[in-house]
Simulated scan of single mutants.
Amino acid sequence: MRRSLALLTALALLTAGAGCASRGDAAAGAEQRVLRYQGAVGTVTLPELAADLGYLDDVSLKWIGNTTSGPQDIQAATTGDVEFGGAFNGAIVKLKAAKAPIQAVIGYYGVNEQVYGGYYVLDGSPVKSARDLIGKKIGMNTLGAHYEAVLKTYLVRNGLSDEEIKKVEPVVVPPVSTEQALRSGQIDVAVLSGTLRDKALEKGGIHPLFTDFELLGAFTAGSYVFRTEFLKKNPTTVRTFVTGVAKAIEWTRTTPREQVIAKYAEILKKRARNEDDSQLKFWKSTGVAGAGGLISDQEFSTWVDWLDRSGELKNGKPALKDVFTNQYNGYKAA
């Protein structure tokens, strides 16, 4: 029995040691300087851009695979599979309200006149107003995130009752298949953005019922989060990361568009993941509203209030100071 206990103890120590190694090889008492994360196919994330530009100093990134959606990405951060993840601010609010130990630290994507999501219908479609959406299918990349929240905001603002809104059916359609699903009549409305929107518009035959920019104006829509425990133990690392990403955001604002696209293409080529870079030519902006990704109260309070009204915050409204912070962002002082 003593031999067995000794073996179990040794195995436990080895497992613990392996766990520490997987979380960045930080020495005892030292801050972790390797951050695991999930990427996106054919896309360069702002942290990846910051790393390539040298803005992360001695903090390095470790890619462990690609995310399937924003909610999945921040779930991975919550469970400790990655150090940080990014998602729509409303999804962050819902996870925080469920007592997840996370906090948003910087905005990373948004909506403006160049970068927006449109709710497209076929030319000649009978869908011409919010009320026409009753009984119709709206295809989007994931549920419980940005586009479902914007859709329901549109329906509420146009006077639909709760019972009528329940009859509008958001359905998940892979982004690469959304345009075809619309054109073949499988869905009535297609949510299209970025490259896929621009390619679809080039073909013609579709037009927007409305867009999130028309509905809500310019705003930062999504943020990166860390676990609160990680923030407490690694404040310098987080400050380096957040400030580096902030610099990358400003670099995209002040650098000619052609040079930004060329840099993204260079990064895709260097990481050698056999990705298609044809969509890069459509890049226009990050859409981030605040300087250096600074987060404003409204960018979270809007979704806190909306989720509360819709009855989705079963544990009450989380305090904004617990949901996000700008304290790690070097642009705060400016």
Rank of each mutant, 00 (worst) to 15 (best):
A12C: 13
L13T: 08
G80Y: 02
A28T: 14
L56Y: 08
V82N: 01
Q75G: 01
A98T: 11
R33D: 06
G80R: 05
A27N: 12
L46W: 00
S22E: 07
L7A: 15
A40T: 10
V41F: 12
G65I: 03
L49M: 11
G39D: 06
E31I: 02
L14C: 10
D25F: 13
G39C: 08
G70K: 00
C20V: 15
K94I: 04
L35G: 01
E31M: 08
K62C: 07
T43G: 02
G70A: 02
T45H: 03
E48C: 05
V34S: 04
L13C: 10
A98I: 10
F88H: 13
A10G: 15
I92E: 01
Y37G: 04
T79Y: 13
L13Y: 07
L11P: 05
L11Y: 10
L11I: 08
T78F: 01
T79G: 10
Q72F: 02
S60A: 14
G39T: 10
R2S: 14
T79F: 14
G90N: 04
Q38R: 09
T45C: 01
V41H: 12
A87Y: 02
A91W: 04
G85I: 07
A16V: 12
A12D: 07
L8W: 10
T43Y: 05
D52I: 06
A91H: 02
A26H: 02
A97S: 12
L53M: 09
A40M: 09
G90Q: 07
L61D: 06
A91R: 00
F88C: 05
L35E: 04
G19F: 06
G42M: 08
E83C: 09
S4T: 15
R2C: 13
I92N: 02
T9K: 11
Y55W: 06
L14T: 13
A77W: 00
L56T: 06
Y37T: 05
K96E: 04
Q32A: 15
T43D: 07
L56E: 04
S22N: 06
D58R: 11
T15W: 09
L13R: 05
R36P: 00
T9N: 10
L11W: 10
A18Y: 12
P71E: 04
L11E: 11
L95H: 04
A28W: 15
L8Q: 12
K62I: 11
A76M: 01
V93L: 05
L61W: 03
A76S: 06
P47D: 09
E48D: 12
G19I: 13
V59L: 13
G65M: 04
V34N: 00
D57N: 14
D58H: 12
Q38T: 05
A21Q: 07
V59H: 01
G86A: 13
Y55N: 06
